[in-house]
Amino acid sequence: MIAAIASLTALGLALGLGLGFAARKLKVEGNPLVAEIEALLPGSQCGQCGYPGCTGAAQALADGGAPVTLCPPGGRDLVIQLAAKLGVEADLSGVKDSVPSIAEVREELCIGCTRCYKVCPTDAILGSAKHIHSVFREACTACGKCVDACPTEAILMRPIPVTMQTWYWGKPALEAA
């Protein structure tokens, strides 16, 4: 009787200590998922998803309140990555097979109003008042904010031209059989 009580007590104490130790030692700070999702998002805070910036979108995704297809600049690849991260089925039917694009200023229409310059989240548009603006290719994320801001419709989204450095073989056609 005494032995049974003693052994159970000892067992309980040992396991309790183990659990307590583990809880301290292996503690997870915050929800790592939000940070991981945010790392996948473009980070340009363009706001096209309707959330306040990429952190807000990541929070909404982690809570399950937003569809994985929410981010237009991320394109198809991002949808697939988010779906894998969140363990959900991705519905790709609505996602355009977006070609990587960049903004391009049509010089003949640009009036140098600097509105695009002010809204660009990545400072990818160069220029000053009354001068024609141009786009810094490497920094443009094709978020489209400048297109909406331009009063003369002088900004277009164009696919990034393929160069010999970026070209690669397409996927082979499926074998007939």
């Binding site: 980070g43 690849d77 660009c120 989240p121 990545t122 400072d123 690669y168």
Partner: peptide
């Protein structure tokens, strides 16, 4: 290509943060 896109994303994210 994905690697290049990732590098670009990192760069633009820095730009966005700086802005």
């Amino acid at each position: 290509a994905k690697e290049r896109a990732k590098l670009k994303q990192e760069a633009t994210r820095k730009l966005a943060d700086a802005r």
